[in-house]
């Protein structure tokens, strides 16, 4: 193997190490930021979930015809949501996700 190949692989090795170091550094600094963004998104998700399912909780929903069409797509998210709310099993009879 020539010196040029050796030099190239050494540079590639150091470049990948540097990239990993920068990614690690970014991950350290982003950790609290990611948490706050995730929390805000989760709050929005909870509100959206409430708007979709409000008629099942006794709150009239004038657009239930439209939100009803969303239910098959929301099965998984609904399951995550009720678990997050501290309910291990689905609280709604008409919506058995688990």
């Amino acid at each position: 193997m020539s010196h040029a190949d050796d030099d190239g692989s050494v540079i590639a090795l150091w470049r990948s190490r540097l990239r990993r170091a920068i990614q690690g550094y970014d991950a350290v600094l982003s950790l609290p930021h990611r948490r706050e963004i995730a929390r805000e998104l989760q709050d929005e998700e909870d509100l959206f979930m409430l708007l979709c399912f409000c008629d099942m909780m006794g709150i009239p929903n004038p657009v239930s015809d439209m939100t009803l069409e969303l239910y098959p797509h929301m099965l998984e998210r609904f399951h995550e949501w009720h678990q997050r709310q501290g309910m291990p099993r689905s609280p709604l009879d008409g919506f058995r996700c688990c």
């Binding site: 690690g24 991950a27 600094l29 950790l31 995730a38 989760q42």
Partner: peptide, 21 residues
């Protein structure tokens, strides 16, 4: 694990986060 507060994190990253906090 909820993707917000409870997230398993690499120990080096967590050390850095703890130290900077």
């Amino acid at each position: 694990r909820d993707g917000v507060d409870y997230v398993p994190t690499n120990k080096w990253i967590l050390w850095g986060h703890h130290f900077t906090s």
